[in-house]
Write a protein that binds this DNA or RNA. Structure first.
Lengths: 282, 282
DNA sequence: TCTAAGTTAGAATTTTTATTCTAAAAATGC
DNA sequence: GCATTTTTAGAATAAAAATTCTAACTTAGA
């Protein structure tokens, strides 16, 4: 198919990108995986990689053949070579990234910003699991499990998280309603809250007025609140059944959302598991 | 002989140096080789390494046993780990250590899920900076800088990211319009696109039809597209000026958004920097 | 020099890994 | 909608790797 066999990993990567549109479904799956996780490929076996890329072992062989290699092993050599060549430069690269804040041209600084964000966000993620209590997680999942339906409110930065909650909960077939205040109807939407529901409130400092109003309305009706915020001393803490505090990474006075998103994800999947177990037990 | 098995390569190296004088001739040959060429050990097989160190294959097994390993393969793991950690990525280590999916009760499993999500997301963040090319970042920032206004489209899971773009861009005082298809008006909203604008398209597999339609309309009008997706081979790639591929962590067939959010953030802040510089220079 | 303890290399075995082949499935063209 | 081609997954095979076992060897001590 492609007779000229690539000599370096970069070479191969280019050929893959180029050929990608013409590849069949499974081969493209492998192509995507290879571009994304070259390190895994360096050490993996056909068996482990097949699992990771969710394809049949022989697909890897066919893939290697398609790019001119005699088999998987020959192709793997390229990935190992690459890894070796990378190790010597590594120290230097880290030094570069940890340098002063953007001094060079736009090109460099943009990538430095990205690197720093990645690093800071990764760090705050690493702490997240430690900072969130088991009890809070369990309580919130139980609340969501028992709820007739779930409403979510959040504005501005918090809106992205709120919309993700709505998406995720619907994905696992829970009734989820996003209070988005469309056409200024925050209060009208909040009126639909029932005391057998649950309200998830996502709110970061400075706490949005609309969000506080909705939360107050809900509290008056006796609707349990699950709060996700960035401070223990937020105005919602006292009325909340559960109060998650997430410290998202901050770079250059801009806060991220990675940790909040991660917690949202964990709650959703945790709920999915709980529901599964419930069903299994009758 | 030496019951305590080393946990890191450094650990092992120290133990080797310490034990070296007491080792037999062949074992010392291996010891010398191991200290001198750890990188070879990471990739080699018992056969190739035996030749390189001029010993019999079984010597390697005896050597590994002498330091408490169950066999050569177990010892080799340490060398692979080391190589990966040098390249900033400890994916392999976690892959090796990672155990089965939670089996315990809801309380434990919920927190386990959170831990795993944090871990996976942190890992994919670490890779993000490496996988995103400088050129793509620069190009997209320049496009956004020159754009009269910015439109953003994304549905379902991608909607959270799209809404974050809209929020962030407005925050730095760019004109940003979120094409949310409210009241089914995707096409009507898309009609507002001007060729001096830019369209940011966020789309993950399976690519939403609405998103593709909007992107097509934009492309026809000559509006530059910045695409953020999860695969090199997405249906938008060919029409895009820039095609960012972000592989968000996946746990239990549910994908996160941490990395996408992080990239969005970096683009926004990178743009803010570029605008600042532009203003400073007159 | 002989013996006993430790060490080694070779052969054999077991396990793992890669590859090939083939029937079924999917996609494509008519 | 049918026939043809391509693609895929599973089983079977081939190759390779790692490990074990044992007899031969080496060394040290009497």
């Amino acid at each position: 198919m492609i007779p000229q066999l690539p000599e370096t990993l970069d070479d191969l990567n280019n050929k893959i990108k180029q050929a990608s549109p013409t590849l069949s479904k499974r081969l493209r799956q492998v192509a995507d995986y290879v571009l994304e996780a070259p390190r895994e490929v360096a050490f993996g076996t056909v068996a482990t990689l097949s699992k990771a890329a969710q394809v049949h072992p022989s697909t890897w062989v066919r893939f290697a053949n398609a790019f001119g290699f005699s088999g998987f092993s020959e192709m793997q050599g390229l990935f190992q070579q690459n890894l070796l060549s990378q190790t010597s430069n590594y120290q230097e690269r880290v030094r570069l990234v940890r340098n002063e804040w953007p001094s060079g041209d736009v090109e460099d600084s943009a990538h430095q910003i990205l690197s720093q964000f990645c690093e800071e966000n990764a760090r705050s993620l690493e702490q997240l699991a430690e900072n969130i209590s088991k009890d809070d997680l369990t309580t919130s999942i139980t609340l969501l499990q028992q709820a007739l339906s779930v409403h979510i409110v959040g504005v501005r930065r918090a809106f992205s998280v709120a919309s993700y909650f709505a998406y995720g909960l619907r994905h696992i077939e829970r009734k989820a309603y996003l209070i988005d205040g469309i056409a200024g109807m925050f209060e009208e939407q909040a009126a639909a809250l029932d005391k057998n529901d649950v309200l998830i409130v996502v709110s970061f400092a400075p706490y949005g007025e609309e969000t506080l109003n909705v939360a107050n309305l809900a509290a008056q009706k006796g609707v349990p609140l699950i709060v996700l915020s960035d401070s223990h001393s937020n105005p919602l803490a006292s009325m909340a059944k559960v109060n998650f505090v997430v410290r998202d990474a901050q770079v250059q006075s801009f806060r991220g959302l990675s940790s909040s998103m991660c917690l949202a994800q964990a709650i959703i999947i945790g709920l999915a598991h709980a529901l599964e177990k419930e069903n299994a037990n009758g």
